[in-house]
Every structure is written in C-alpha cells, then in structure tokens.
C-alpha cells in the first residue's frame, strides 16, 4: 500500500512539476482572492487584519477546489482513470497517493498565501507552531475529503459544478476550526475553546476521512 501510494503521489506531483498548472494558475488565483478581499473590505479600518485568518482559509478552500479538480483532470484524459484502476495498485494506496499529492500542493500554496497575508494584511504571527499544526491537520483533512469526493464525482459530466456543492458543506468544520486555531496563533489570546481543542477537531476530521478513504476508495473507483 505504501509503495503504491508513493508511486501515485510521485506521478501526480511530477505531472504538476512539469505542467506548472498549480504554480502558474492555482497559486496566482489564491493570491488574487486575497487581493479581492482587500477590495471588498476597507483595508484602512483594520478589518482585514482582524479577518485575516478566515480570509486566508477561505482562499485556501477555493484553491483546494481547483487543486482537486486538477487532480481529477490529470486522470480524465486518455483513459488514465481506467488504466490506474486496472493497474493492480492497491485502491487504498491510490487514495493515499492522490490525497498526498493534493496535500503537498496545498501546503506549498499555504506558505505562499501565508506570506501574502502577512505582507498584504499587516498580520503578525505569534504562535508559529499552532499555525503549523493547524495547517498540517487541516490540509490532511481537506486533501482526504477532496480526494474522496473527487473520486465520487470523477466520471460525471457535471463534476465542475457538482464537486463544490458536495465538498464545501462537508469541509465547513475545517474552515471553522482552522480559522479559530489560526486566530489564536495570530492574536496570541486564548479563547473559551482553546486552540488545542480546535486542533483536536481538525485531527479527528482528517483521521475520519482518511480512514473512510482507505476502506471505501476501492468501491468508489468501480463506478
């Protein structure tokens, strides 16, 4: 399973590295969203600074949708989906590989967007490790849920419109928890529900969807 996962993840990441779609389209899109937020909210009144964690994660979420769409498109052409299915690779390995590839891209994107938030929104990071933990666990959850729903919608003609409708309500808790955890990492203040609780929730979400994917990816591929 692990070997298969590494193979699939390596394939997807190599394609991204060579096609540069993620680098040249998804990344700039995320930064553009950050700039659009500044247009929508008055940058002079400190709203941007206060709302920075939420805006950051919304930008990540939209970019994650694009990354998942892209991860499907890679296999949509030339019957690659059927080839992967018939390759004899362990379905659990395929799932882990695809999710890991999406996760790696998202992490790179988060670093870029994080720098963007610090530069554009005048934000100071207080608790770097809370932020790193939130980013890692939220990314694992997003990538796992995204890959599962991606597999569900993969063969469908309406997948571009259906995927956001299916995925966004499901990852709503990730947005809430990641935003709250980042909030305390940026402001340094602790709230009634501590950052640790939110990190725990993010971890539970990630574990649930990874476990689901390991068990159910096989039947999902059969569609």
């Amino acid at each position: 399973m692990w070997r298969d996962a590494v193979l699939v993840a390596g394939k997807d990441l190599r394609i991204e590295l060579r096609s540069r779609i993620a680098l040249q389209q998804v990344g700039p899109f995320g930064v553009l969203v950050l700039v659009l937020f500044a247009f929508a909210l008055d940058p002079d009144r400190g709203i941007l600074t206060r709302a920075a964690p939420g805006l950051f994660w919304v930008a990540v979420l939209f970019s994650a949708l694009l990354a998942v769409q892209r991860s499907l498109a890679v296999e949509g052409a030339d019957g690659v989906r059927d080839a992967v299915r018939l390759s004899g690779l362990d379905p659990a390995g395929i799932f882990l590989g695809k999710a890991a590839a999406v996760a790696v891209q998202l992490l790179v994107l988060e670093v870029v967007l994080g720098a963007g938030v610090v530069l554009l929104y005048d934000v100071h990071i207080v608790g770097i490790w809370t932020l790193v933990a939130a980013a890692l666990s939220a990314t694992a959850g997003l990538a796992a849920a995204g890959s599962l729903y991606g597999a569900l919608a993969a063969g469908l003609r309406v997948r571009e419109t259906l995927l956001p409708l299916l995925l966004l309500p499901v990852v709503a808790p990730v947005l809430i928890a990641a935003t709250r955890a980042s909030e305390s990492a940026l402001t340094g203040t602790s709230f009634e529900v501590s950052a640790g609780d939110w990190l725990g929730l993010l971890a539970v979400f990630a574990v649930l969807y990874i476990a689901f994917g390991l068990l159910a990816y096989g039947p999902l591929l059969e569609d």
Binding site: A172, P173, I176, A177, R180, V193, D197, W198, L201, V204, F205, L208
Partner: peptide, 8 residues
C-alpha cells in the same frame, strides 16, 4: 464533527 465545530 459539524456539531462540535458549530457549537464551539
């Protein structure tokens, strides 16, 4: 998960 996220 939603339940906890939203309640908290």
């Amino acid at each position: 998960v939603n339940h906890f996220a939203v309640t908290w």
